[in-house]
Nucleic acid binder design. Structure first.
Length: 346
DNA sequence: GGAGCCCTGCGA
DNA sequence: TCGCAGGGCTCC
């Protein structure tokens, strides 16, 4: 499922393939991903026809393609959304979703070979769960069949809309890939993400510590720091040595800083290998999966051994989300009258 | 700040 | 057949 590293991999691909392209037509196979579009599907198509894409930007898990009329096509992939570029200049390469995931323990294939700036099947390929297709005006050197951007989404928890761009609250660039101090109106309430150079990390720590909720819930709150989903929240907490049920306000400043730093570090390492393809639901714009799943320490590993101490990892529910943790490496809240669980000093 | 909903596929 | 998984929005 796409979190910040996966969305960033998608953004980079969109920037590479789509910047400067013009949208010729819009095909809506299922209008449900457009449920938040003002004016409905017809307004969506109308707003995009004839517009040129001027870039690709991202804040947290929100993506947007700025358009030449000052508005933007904004997209959130939810948990199963994929944006796939089809039929670019070079011949199609077999890159079926998840088809070249290596078994755990085996070295990843040559990333430079799988990430050539080309590929992806032609437009005659209509994948299962294709919801929206943007047909792009042809350019010299394009594949004969044409070029398109497909929104493929199994579960449709995300969506797309054409929206106004509004000034950022702090006057700084809107996000990765956006030199302008603008963000889509529907992402204006989203905080800067952990990999954003403009993020005021000290202020984020203060905001996190002002909440009485569990630290795990706070990490997932996109209004405090954006881009963290369930996978990287669990990984960051494990690396930071803090159990997700600890009340955020009860943690030391240093502990919150350590967790945020650890989470950012995990996301940076994931980004370097194309993100996490925990299942077949995440691939980049060229259909290639990421290779970070093999490096996950806790997420999806409940009942298995902790890679640090060998204890059996546990799973529980915090704030309605699963949380996998090590009972030995991650400190829990102290019960009344006890000295708490063993673990790293905070 | 928490619960419920959206939505589909999968495993029990 | 049912419960779960997930992010974000709406409602209370």
């Amino acid at each position: 499922m796409p979190e910040l590293p996966e969305v960033e991999a998608v953004r980079a691909g969109l920037a590479r393939h789509l910047t400067g392209r013009r949208i010729a037509d819009v095909e809506i196979l299922d209008s449900r991903p457009l449920r938040r579009q003002d004016g409905g599907p017809e307004a969506f198509a109308q707003a995009l026809r004839g517009r040129a894409i001027t870039g690709a930007a991202r804040r947290g898990k929100f993506l947007w393609l700025p358009l030449d009329d000052g508005r933007a096509l904004s997209a959130h992939l939810g948990m199963s959304g994929q944006l796939l570029v089809r039929g670019t200049a070079a011949p199609a390469v077999a890159a079926a979703s998840g088809a070249h995931l290596s078994p755990p323990g085996e070295p990843p294939p040559d990333l430079t070979a799988t990430r050539a700036p080309s590929l992806v099947r032609d437009l005659s390929c209509q994948p299962r769960h294709l919801r929206i297709r943007l047909l792009l005006a042809p350019l010299p050197g394009d594949a004969p069949g044409g070029v398109a951007l497909d929104l493929v989404d199994q579960r449709m928890l995300g969506g797309m809309r054409v929206t106004e761009l509004v000034p950022t609250a702090d006057g700084a660039p809107g996000g990765q890939g956006s030199p302008e101090p603008l963000v889509p109106a529907d992402a204006a309430h989203i905080a800067r993400d952990l990999l954003d150079p403009v993020l005021d990390r000290a202020a984020a720590v203060t905001r996190a510590r002002s909440s009485r909720r569990a630290i795990k819930t706070v990490l997932l709150d996109q209004g405090i720091v954006s881009g963290i989903g369930n996978i990287y929240a669990d990984e960051g907490l494990w690396h930071g040595g803090v159990h997700g049920s600890r009340q955020s306000a009860a943690l030391s400043r240093r502990a919150v800083e350590r967790v945020l730093k650890a989470t950012a570090s995990v996301m940076e390492r994931a980004l370097a290998v194309g993100g996490t393809s925990f299942d077949s639901l995440y691939v980049d714009v060229e259909g290639a999966p990421g290779y970070f799943a093999r490096s996950l320490a806790v997420y999806g590993r409940a009942g298995r051994e902790c890679r640090r101490c060998g204890a059996t990892l546990r799973s529980e529910v915090i704030g309605g989300r699963s949380h996998t943790s090590c009972p030995r490496c991650q400190t829990r809240p102290r019960a009344r009258g006890t000295r708490g669980q063993p673990g790293p000093r905070l």
